[in-house]
Simulated scan of single mutants.
Amino acid sequence: MAHKILYPLASLGQIKETPSRADGLSQELEDDLRAYGCKIIQQAGLLLRQKQVAMATAQILFQRFWYVTSMTQFGISDVGMGALYLASKLEECPVRMRDLINVFDLLLSRARHGLSSTSSTSEFEYTPMTYFSSTFYDLKEALVISEMQILKRLGFNVQAQLPYGTMVNYLRLLGLDEHPDAAQKAWGYLNDALQTPVYALYPIPTIACAAILLTTRTLSLPLPAGWYLLFDAELEDMMSICGMIMRLYRDRPESERARWVRLAVGGKREVRKWLSENVRSDVQGDR
């Protein structure tokens, strides 16, 4: 019971129908927007020289948030910004608010340029905001509101446990720790899994076992039958996690990429507009 308190997971009802899917978004599009938001968090964290633990915590909080809130209510980039700001404080590596806002403005400006008709003929040039720019204050307000809403809607339960140490211990128990590529490859799968909802759906031991399963399949390494039972993991859950991770690597048409970038950059209004034009008309308008 204590484990569940420290590491909350989505309920069965939230998994079957998230708030965004209830509002008309398909599961595929929601997953794409989740993944893109996590990429923005990672890019911003790298530019800010944040610790990996802070970026990972931010992505986990970001994923949890969408199990209690619809993407028609808050923007992808706003929540990503708020999650990284909150995580930097939780992991004791706080970032300056202005620095965070500047970095997100840079990333969003670059994404908008990629969507423009002139992106193929002109290089992206970023013009920094002026000190008293209205854009800065708009982003600042969005940041403060997003951080507050993450805390409120997650019930201030913002603890995030990471599986890296657990995975390394499992590799040692299985005799794979001395393999030159096993640990690095499994570590990479755990990083990629942050772009998926698995950290909000499955306990840490199961996620670590899934990364090991993918690694051994990729590197053709043998494992004893039923090895995962030693770590209280279920094969069905592991295969589900593996499927979510492998989904990230499939080829996608450029039109699909442009769609989720546009929706993520445009915020909740763009999501509502897209829904009204493509899915259903009754989700248009502010709540």
Results as ranks from 00 to 15, higher is better:
114 G>R: 05
273 K>T: 10
198 V>T: 01
57 T>Q: 11
80 G>R: 04
219 L>S: 03
226 G>H: 10
277 E>M: 13
107 L>A: 00
143 L>C: 11
259 R>G: 01
26 S>D: 11
23 D>Y: 04
5 I>P: 00
224 P>G: 01
58 A>L: 07
116 S>H: 07
100 L>I: 00
62 F>C: 07
158 V>E: 06
11 S>E: 13
231 F>S: 00
202 Y>F: 15
54 A>T: 11
122 S>E: 14
238 M>A: 02
267 G>Q: 03
46 L>G: 14
183 A>G: 00
230 L>I: 12
26 S>F: 10
66 W>S: 04
258 A>C: 07
276 S>Q: 13
78 D>F: 04
45 G>E: 15
79 V>K: 00
175 G>D: 03
104 F>W: 09
151 L>V: 02
33 L>P: 00
48 L>C: 13
114 G>D: 11
280 R>T: 10
9 L>K: 08
155 G>K: 06
16 K>L: 15
55 M>W: 10
26 S>T: 15
48 L>D: 14
60 I>K: 03
144 V>E: 09
141 E>G: 13
184 Q>T: 15
71 M>I: 07
242 C>F: 03
28 E>L: 14
250 R>S: 06
142 A>M: 12
4 K>Q: 12
263 L>M: 12
160 A>I: 05
57 T>E: 08
182 A>W: 05
284 Q>C: 08
210 A>K: 01
103 V>P: 11
34 R>L: 09
281 S>W: 14
153 R>V: 10
274 W>G: 07
41 I>C: 03
257 R>P: 01
24 G>M: 14
36 Y>W: 13
190 L>R: 01
262 R>I: 05
153 R>K: 09
266 G>S: 07
18 T>Y: 08
123 E>A: 14
260 W>K: 02
272 R>F: 07
212 I>G: 07
40 I>G: 09
76 I>M: 03
32 D>P: 01
72 T>C: 08
126 Y>T: 10
184 Q>K: 14
40 I>L: 15
216 T>P: 02
40 I>P: 03
125 E>Q: 15
15 I>D: 08
68 V>W: 05
125 E>L: 14
97 M>S: 10
172 R>A: 14
229 L>N: 14
159 Q>M: 09
91 E>W: 10
247 R>D: 08
35 A>F: 00
123 E>F: 08
59 Q>M: 15
193 A>N: 02
67 Y>E: 07
217 R>I: 11
170 Y>N: 11
82 G>V: 05
89 K>M: 12
48 L>K: 02
193 A>V: 01
268 K>S: 15
215 T>G: 00
197 P>R: 12
44 A>H: 07
55 M>K: 12
17 E>K: 13
98 R>K: 13
222 P>Q: 03
206 T>N: 04
156 F>K: 06
